[in-house]
């Protein structure tokens, strides 16, 4: 038999990449998540080297390499929308419903904004500078979704207005 590369020999097969994992939150991550779950308090860590309050908390400051264990400070639950986008595509990994507003929210007392979703308002009415506050999940969760979403502090008009970006 001769080798004759032929498209008739080619086909595709549906498959999947699927792997079961057990992720570990670590000591600092667990403390952060448990404070969210059990006390509805949001914790950050403060680097003594650069005086930055980091949220989510972590073990090491990536600028100073300082050890951040046990440098807890409480932040939020209110904060300011520093930046946002509106995710308008649905996909397996995108929480419903779409459009989904993902915002960088700088919690009061924190220096690094946290990415979370905004709810309780018209996606077209989100603005940079909006004051928002955490809405905690009714049931305990093992992720940042202990905060279900952020909502505006003040009642928002539902009508869409001009967008903040150029053009």
């Amino acid at each position: 038999m001769e080798l004759t590369p032929d498209l008739r020999d080619c086909f595709t097969v549906p498959g999947k990449l699927a792997l079961p994992y057990t992720y570990f939150a670590g000591r600092i991550g667990s403390r952060f998540l448990l404070a969210l779950q059990e006390e509805h308090r949001i914790l950050g860590v403060r680097c003594a080297g650069c005086a930055t309050v980091l949220v989510p908390p972590r073990a090491t400051c990536d600028r100073c390499q300082a050890d951040l264990a046990d440098t807890w400070v409480e932040v939020g639950p209110a904060g300011r929308v520093e930046n946002f986008t509106v995710v308008r595509y649905a996909d397996r990994h995108v929480p419903e419903p779409v459009p989904l507003v993902l915002a960088l929210i700088r919690l009061d007392g924190a220096d690094t904004p946290l990415v979370h979703r905004l709810g309780g308002m018209d996606p077209e009415a989100v603005r940079v500078g909006l004051r928002v506050t955490a809405v905690f999940a009714a049931e305990p969760r093992d992720t940042l979704l202990c905060i279900d979403h952020f909502r505006p502090l003040a009642p928002q008009p539902s009508a869409a207005g001009p967008r903040p970006q150029g053009g």
Binding site: K16, A18, T22, Y23, A25, R27, L34, D142
Partner: peptide, 9 residues
């Protein structure tokens, strides 16, 4: 300490 079981797919 918190662990999270998840199958990525």
């Amino acid at each position: 300490l918190i662990t999270l079981r998840q199958t990525i797919a």
